[in-house]
């Protein structure tokens, strides 16, 4: 029975294409990771295993630049993810538990606006906006821009999660004499936790990774890791860039993996 079923579903060659697809997706990352351990100062020749370039990232001539950039990146990412997750949680509560209302579609459009508008357009618009109100570009403008465009990334997993939670849990709480606020904090929020955590992590990574918008609104002298890396790469790929890239990509993969397992732990069942 099972084999017959499988036979109808599967097509020859699809598995091979899938594996090719994974190869294309992972090969560049794996290669860069390997070459980041290259002892050579040239990126072309392999001269044996070494942590030389990792040391260079922390102590080399560009280390000060990268330290400041990393500090900016991580502090902005933490603050932007916290703010956007809070805003997205409130918005999701209104959208999923607020009944039908006239502005629902408009609100949803507004929330998903940063996903629909091409990133470069958002970048230009944000730059123009700060310019027109006479706001000096720098750390703060990056933070504000990140909060705004991280909202949909936090919103999507949170609202998906909330839609998956039947409202009978909150009704049961209220039936058992909990006020609305208590039903929200004691029942809905704990059940929402996986969605909120994965929303936070996604917002965090999106903020950490952003290049285009940051590049437009950062102003002179303020760098985040992506803009610092881009500046470096413009003069050619150097081994220390590969080391820093490997660290950053490992960090992203760890975060996404955590998010994956958190969202898999379904505590409503």
């Amino acid at each position: 029975m099972a084999t017959v079923n499988n036979d109808i579903k599967t097509y020859k060659g699809f598995r091979a294409i899938t594996l090719l697809c994974l190869l294309v997706l992972y090969a560049p990352l794996v290669i860069v990771t390997i070459y980041s351990f290259n002892a050579s100062a040239s990126i072309t020749n392999w001269e044996g295993l070494s942590f030389r370039w990792y040391a260079d990232v922390f102590t080399g001539p560009e280390s000060d630049k990268f330290k400041v950039a990393a500090f900016n990146s991580f502090t902005i990412a933490i603050m932007a993810a916290t703010a956007s997750t809070t805003i997205a949680t409130l918005a999701a509560t209104a959208m999923v538990r607020g009944g039908k209302f006239k502005l629902r579609t408009v609100s949803f459009g507004l929330i998903s606006l940063p996903l629909m508008v091409p990133e470069i357009v958002t970048a230009v618009a944000t730059l123009i906006f700060f310019n027109s109100i006479g706001f000096t570009r720098g750390y703060l403008t990056i933070l504000v821009a990140h909060i705004a465009f991280c909202i949909p990334f936090a919103y999507l997993p949170i609202s998906a999660r909330m839609q998956g939670i039947e409202d009978s849990f909150e009704q049961a709480a209220m039936d058992l004499y909990a006020t609305k606020r208590q039903a929200f904090t004691k029942v809905l929020m704990p059940l929402m936790a996986p969605g909120i955590i994965s929303g936070f992590l996604l917002a965090f990574i999106v903020s950490l990774d952003d290049f285009i918008i940051t590049n437009f609104v950062k102003g002179a002298g303020v760098e985040t890791l992506p803009t610092a890396i881009f500046g470096s790469v413009k003069q050619g790929i150097k081994p220390n860039i590969m080391a820093i890239s490997t660290m950053l990509l490992s960090f992203s993969i760890v975060m996404v993996t955590i998010s994956y397992f958190v969202s898999k732990s379904d505590n409503t069942k």
Partner: peptide, 24 residues
Amino acid sequence: TTDTYKEARNWLLLPSWAVLGIFV
């Protein structure tokens, strides 16, 4: 969609409206 928090709706939406309205 359910309407458990219908009364608080506008307050809950206000931050996202403000941030996205002003900065996007």
